[in-house]
Simulated scan of single mutants.
Amino acid sequence: MIQNYVSTIQINSTKAEPRSKQKIEAEVEKFRKNCKITSLKGKAVDILKVLDLSSEIYGYEYEVVEDLDLPNNVYAETDLIDRKIYIKESVYNRAAEGSTRDRFTIAHEIGHIIMHTDKIIVCRGEEIKKYEYPEWQADHFAAELLVPVSHIGDLSVDEITNKYKVSKKVAQIRKSRANSLKNPA
């Protein structure tokens, strides 16, 4: 899910307001406070509870749809104009059971709703810097929501995976981010 994108992307895509990792982390912190998600340290976020609560607070809707209602390779999608998230039923159910991929998918879609309901531009053949790429931004939002970098400390990748119920890849990326903040180059 979290992807290491090259510094620019040249595809028919969308472009968002530029956001650094620090800015996204600050937005997630504000989101956590608004949703009263306070006692996370060492615990996994109940992403379905966050979905319910944040939809009320931020005024968006979500709908769990039959799997056939979305393309095979799409687990969920966000309609930014109508402020609505569509989630495959299987994804929602697996998230309820603790599936790391599906928990991340829902957190990613929440990131789109929070950051991208205004100021998205369609680009055709234009280079987009990764910090302007909505998918990269939503990935970073999801990662920070599920594993706050400030809570990592000396946890190992396996400890992060187990405590926060994220994939090993997400845990590795978050650990790397935490280390880069401790030891800036």
Rank of each mutant, 00 (worst) to 15 (best):
Q3F: 13
Q3I: 15
N4Q: 15
N4F: 11
Y5G: 01
Y5W: 11
V6A: 12
V6N: 12
S7A: 14
I9D: 02
I11R: 13
T14W: 02
T14C: 04
K15Y: 11
A16V: 08
R19E: 08
R19I: 11
S20R: 08
I24R: 01
A26S: 13
E27R: 13
E29P: 02
K30P: 02
F31Q: 01
R32D: 08
R32Y: 05
R32Q: 08
K33D: 05
N34A: 11
N34P: 04
K36A: 10
K36V: 05
K36Q: 14
S39T: 10
S39K: 14
L40A: 02
L40D: 06
L40E: 06
K41T: 06
K41C: 04
G42D: 10
A44I: 11
V45E: 00
V45A: 00
V45C: 01
D46C: 06
L48S: 04
K49E: 10
L51F: 01
D52S: 10
L53K: 11
S54C: 07
E56H: 11
E56T: 13
Y58H: 09
Y60E: 05
E61C: 12
E61A: 12
V64Y: 03
V64D: 02
V65R: 06
E66M: 06
D67N: 07
L68K: 15
N73K: 14
D79G: 03
D82C: 11
D82E: 15
R83T: 01
R83K: 08
K84N: 05
